Simulated assay, not measured.
Amino acid sequence: MTDASTTTPGAIAPGAASPDALRPEILAYYERGAEQDRLLSGRNRLEFWRTQDVLRRLLGETPLRILDVGGGAGIHAAWLAGDGHRVDLVDPVPLHVEQAGRLPGVRAALGDARALASADDSYDAVLLLGPLYHLTERADRLRALAEAARAVRPGGLVVAATINRWAGMHDLLRTAVYFEPNRRARTESAMETGVLAHSERDSMFTTAYFHRPEDVPAEFAEAGLAPFGQYGLEGSAWLMPDMEEHLDDADRRAVVLDALRRTESVPSLLGVSGHLLTAGRLGPSASEKDER
């Protein structure tokens, strides 16, 4: 890719060469273009609002230099830039880079979470709100987290999103799809191994890795980061069949979001959420406790 930083206002220098090419089925899944608006409609809004809520508390009000790794079409980069942060986004999908590069205050480039082009200690916070979803090998996940640790300044914040091990089962039970033998077999295999295998017959999601909540802090620590907080995003609310109606009602939505904030870090409830955020720090602030 040519360095678009000299020709396109919303671009930054391209990332380092990828250690391995993005799997074709994953690239094809995201080239469908659904990521630009997916979190802004229906029950997906719950994940968006909860991610926004947790990140705003962790980042604070002081403008920061943020690297949004695997930031997709910029769904979170947009509001982060609107909050006054300086946001660079890297993503391995060309369509996402093109879309994110059009957002005000966001610089975007092709890049791989496992081989960032960023200089050492160059960001106040590094976000991985998607890369760990698709790195099925532990060595690759550790490599991505180590790259985040390298790019963040001492004492800086790293936040990673993961899909919970039982998310597929919960979702398919909610929609009654779990009763279909083929879909159930694929989901049960993912619960056993953590790996959701690609299926030509099932377009709901592509090749992915589903974490156990307790495994994420261990990966942080091995990559040189000290985890200090975990936050279940959707709690049990995403399993309610009429959740969209509650989210449409401002008063009911406020009640739901408050309930989820109250229970977001209860250890016994972390695995109920579809998605989990884990936060850690590098260097002298590694022992910092959650300041919620």
Rank of each mutant, 00 (worst) to 15 (best):
L127E: 11
L128K: 11
L128P: 02
P131N: 00
Y133I: 01
L135D: 05
L135Y: 00
E137I: 13
E137N: 13
R138E: 11
A139S: 06
A139M: 01
A139H: 02
R141E: 07
L142V: 06
A144H: 05
A146C: 09
A148Y: 04
A148I: 00
A148Q: 11
A149V: 10
R150T: 00
A151Y: 01
V152Q: 02
G156R: 06
G156F: 06
L157S: 07
L157Y: 03
V158M: 11
A160T: 00
T162H: 04
I163S: 00
W166Y: 14
G168M: 09
G168H: 11
M169G: 14
M169S: 14
D171I: 12
L172R: 13
L173E: 09
R174D: 13
T175I: 12
T175A: 06
A176H: 15
A176N: 12
F179H: 15
E180H: 14
E180C: 11
E180D: 15
N182Y: 14
N182D: 15
R183T: 13
R183L: 12
R183A: 15
R184A: 09
A185I: 10
T187W: 04
E188D: 11
A190H: 12
E192N: 06
V195L: 07
V195K: 00
V195P: 08
A197R: 12
S199L: 02
E200K: 07
S203H: 11
S203C: 09
S203R: 15
M204S: 15
T206C: 10
T207W: 06
Y209N: 00
F210P: 01
F210Q: 12
F210K: 06
H211G: 02
H211P: 01
H211N: 00
R212F: 04
R212H: 11
R212W: 10
P217C: 06
P217T: 03
F220M: 00
L225H: 09
A226L: 14
P227E: 09
G229H: 05
G229P: 12
G229E: 07
Q230G: 04
Y231D: 04
G232R: 06
G232Y: 08
L233V: 03
E234M: 01
E234C: 08
G235I: 05
G235T: 01
S236Q: 12
P241A: 03
P241W: 10
D242K: 08
M243H: 12
E245I: 14
H246F: 14
D251N: 09
R253Y: 07
R253E: 12
A254S: 05
